[in-house]
Amino acid sequence: MRKSFYQFLMTKRNPSSTESVAEFANNAFYDQSFPKQSTDFDELSKYLEENANYLPSMIIFDEAWTEFIETN
Rank of each mutant, 00 (worst) to 15 (best):
Q37R: 09
E70F: 08
F29P: 06
T66Y: 08
F34E: 00
T18M: 12
Y6V: 06
Y6D: 01
Y6K: 07
L44E: 01
F68T: 01
F68V: 00
S38G: 00
P35Y: 04
F5T: 03
E43V: 11
A64N: 00
L55E: 05
N27S: 11
D42N: 14
E63S: 13
Y54D: 04
T18V: 15
F29R: 14
S16Y: 11
D42R: 10
D62N: 15
K12L: 15
E67L: 10
F41L: 04
L55W: 04
F68D: 02
K12I: 13
D62A: 15
Y54A: 01
F29G: 10
E49Q: 13
A28K: 02
E43R: 04
A28G: 09
V21D: 14
I59S: 14
E70Y: 05
N26A: 10
M58R: 05
E50W: 02
F29D: 14
P56R: 06
F24Y: 04
Q32A: 11
N27E: 14
L9A: 03
P56F: 09
F34T: 03
S45D: 06
F61A: 00
A64W: 00
D40C: 06
T18D: 14
E23P: 03
R13Y: 08
T39I: 12
D40G: 03
S20F: 06
F24V: 07
N14H: 12
P35N: 05
E70T: 11
Q37M: 09
F5L: 09
Y30H: 13
N26H: 02
D42Y: 09
V21P: 03
N27C: 11
F5Q: 05
E43N: 06
E43I: 05
K12S: 08
M10V: 13
P35W: 00
L9K: 02
N51Q: 08
D42E: 14
Q7R: 14
F8P: 07
N51D: 02
S57P: 03
F8E: 08
E50N: 06
N53P: 03
P56T: 07
E23M: 15
I60A: 02
R2N: 12
S17H: 04
D62Q: 15
P35Q: 03
Q32R: 13
N14P: 06
K36A: 06
E23V: 15
F5M: 07
N72V: 11
N53T: 14
L9Y: 03
D31R: 00
N14A: 11
M10Q: 13
F41Y: 14
Y47N: 02
T66H: 13
F34R: 04
Q37Y: 06
E63W: 05
E23K: 15
S20R: 07
E49I: 10
W65E: 01
K46Q: 10
T39Q: 08
F41V: 06
D40V: 05
T66Q: 13
S33G: 03
N14R: 12
L55S: 03
S45P: 01
L48F: 01
F34L: 01
Y30D: 11
A52W: 02
M58K: 09
M58N: 05
D62Y: 14
L55C: 05
S33I: 01
Y30L: 14
P15H: 14
V21F: 08
T71G: 07
Q7K: 15
S33A: 08
N72Q: 11
W65I: 01
N27I: 05
F5P: 05
S38L: 05
A52D: 05
E67P: 04
